[in-house]
Design a protein around this nucleic acid. Structure first.
Lengths: 352, 352
DNA sequence: CTGAAAGCGCTTACAG
DNA sequence: CTGAAAGCGCTTACAG
């Protein structure tokens, strides 16, 4: 057993003295204190009751999946947002640790957090309303819950940015504009699809279903989207990729196909952080500032827990569209690239 | 005040019943429990004494800097490493929160963690030996403390990988091989410099100080290294960049200079994760698996805290060298690029 | 600077 | 399923 009593007995001091050493009380002999702390570490002491930590917030994933770059950007922001209030953040997983019949409140109290920042997936969107119903301090980050006024959230709306991106392509003269979009249509990706559709509609262009390809949100997704789209009899002259990793995969694949960007093909990417500056050519992209999303979420939650705010945060930040080097006018002569690498010019009868 | 007593009084139940509801005790009426939990959230209850969380480990930064990609990779690994033991991880900052006159042990106990994974900077390398001296369970990740046998650590040694990278360039025929290296020479970057030197020495090549440039570890560092090196009267035919972001910046700058990689210039990069696959051409690089470093650190610490291991972990993992598309034979005709963009062929009288 | 003792907030056998 | 009461591990005025 590791208790103040055990340490006190071992060193022939009172439990009061042990407690003072452990709590860095000013009125204690430095040598006594050092002796006690040394014994505490030897005996493997940990405070099993005493005053509990009251400065912890949870960064909660609803599934027990890995921790990705996007989460890291959010977390970096959260840390900045809670720094002023001197809160700490503990990473928790509902899927891994919540036991059955335990309410969310019980789970969070058991983990010692006073408020939670929640990340959702398409299949875990039932969780935030349940937490909100219980009344535990919470904010969802990077998802929207417009139907439930009790759920606090902050997220991006990428519809407008997406629409402007596609309009930019149209104004450059593009008529066959493809969309490579995440398989799992969460609210974010739904926005991007809507923005794409809206821009076509506003400009009286038909939506060709062959130009909308669902992809995995990784490098290979970008590669396979390129293979699929560029081998069409009537390939696109521009593609909008709605995910940073697919964009990067697509750029790589374009080079391998011998296509010049943007001379042979225009590409609009998507950027959560600063990926657009890491590739050549620098990406024209729909961008969002992920870490500032985390920062606002953290700030709100800290204030909520501190009792400074009460009204739930319900904010949708806009993405922005940044023109860089991967978009230009459509090519005079279009190239089709077959799966085996064969390149052929596209029949002029296919019209713009 | 938020206490079991306050809730009990409000709802006319005993504090025992409140305690049971809060702890998800099986023998409790579901309605009573729900009522109590609802009141707990309304009143802002948090357990201020009770049984303390005993499953928290700290991921501790010694400075209060931001949370970078590298930290995110480590943290993702740590989470995998501690998953089996069901530990959670709290992110702590010594610089932000440790008060003066408080020992490290006191600080960590106050934060409620039972062991810590520590990240160091060049200026905070005095901290791990101090923690080890106190006896608090700790492991340093991504730094070495060979002189102090009490300090547990796991890190990479990039000397061998670096030497092999430079040898690869020499075997391809390169004789003027530059090194762009981090300004702050921590143990990692020292290894890379030594590997570079060793390869030159083993192959009887002189080290030209003009070819060793210190850079900031970001995209701009890569850009300025390119500007500096390629404008030399006798520019290199190959460059080894010891950081992922400088590498990526260099690739971008090479394109902007109109240089073909690897035809005009060979580049060896450095990769912590999967950056090498995100650029075109895919990077030939010295690579390390950062998240598995975190995983091993987490695993060790969990076992240390659980009392399963006692001997401090002291492990140095090797980096590996991966040949991809950015290295080739040196160019027949070398190009020098002046700061204003002027390109000129290098006088043939300059050596092979 | 230290100890004996009161007391806090919680948990948990025990009784019903 | 609930309450009265004992008890745990800690902290902290008070006394010296």
């Amino acid at each position: 057993m590791s208790s103040v009593r055990a340490i006190a007995k071992k060193l022939n001091v009172s439990i009061a003295t042990v407690s003072r050493a452990l709590n860095n009380h000013p009125a204690i002999n430095a040598e006594t204190s050092a002796k006690i702390l040394k014994a505490a570490n030897e005996i493997g002491y940990y405070n099993s009751v005493g005053r509990r930590i009251t400065t912890n917030l949870g960064f909660v994933s609803t599934s027990d999946n890995d921790f990705f770059e996007y989460d890291a950007l959010l977390l970096a922001g959260v840390r900045r947002g809670i720094a002023q209030h001197k809160f700490d953040v503990t990473i928790l997983s509902i899927e891994r640790d919540k036991v059955e019949n335990e309410s969310y409140t019980q789970f969070f109290l058991r983990k010692g957090v006073r408020g939670v920042i929640v990340r959702t997936l398409a299949r875990s969107r039932h969780i935030p309303p349940a937490i909100a119903k219980e009344g535990f301090p919470m904010v969802v980050v990077a998802d929207r819950f417009e139907d439930d006024p009790r759920v606090a959230y902050i997220s991006h709306h990428s519809g407008d940015g997406s629409r402007r991106a596609v309009e930019h392509l149209i104004h450059l003269g593009h008529r066959r504009i493809a969309l490579a979009i995440h398989l799992e249509r969460d609210s974010d990706h739904h926005d991007r699809y809507e923005g794409y559709k809206q821009a076509l509609l506003d400009n009286k262009l038909d939506l060709d279903p062959a130009l909308v390809v669902p992809v995995c949100a990784d490098i290979n997704g970008g590669i396979s989207a390129m293979n699929q789209l560029m081998s069409l009899p009537n390939p696109p002259t521009a593609i909008y990729f709605t995910d940073p990793h697919t964009t990067v995969g697509a750029i790589r694949r374009a080079f391998a196909m011998g296509l010049n960007i943007p001379d042979d093909l225009s590409i609009v990417g998507f950027d959560d952080g600063d990926m657009r500056f890491r590739v050549h050519p620098v990406l024209t992209a729909v961008c969002q500032n992920t870490s500032s999303l985390g920062q606002e979420a953290g700030q709100y939650l800290a204030q909520k827990v501190a009792g400074i705010v009460d009204e739930p945060l319900r904010k949708v930040a806009q993405t922005f569209f940044e023109v860089n080097q991967t978009t230009g006018q459509p090519p005079k002569v279009r190239t089709r690239v077959l799966p085996d690498g064969t390149r052929m010019e596209v029949d002029a009868s296919y019209g713009s």
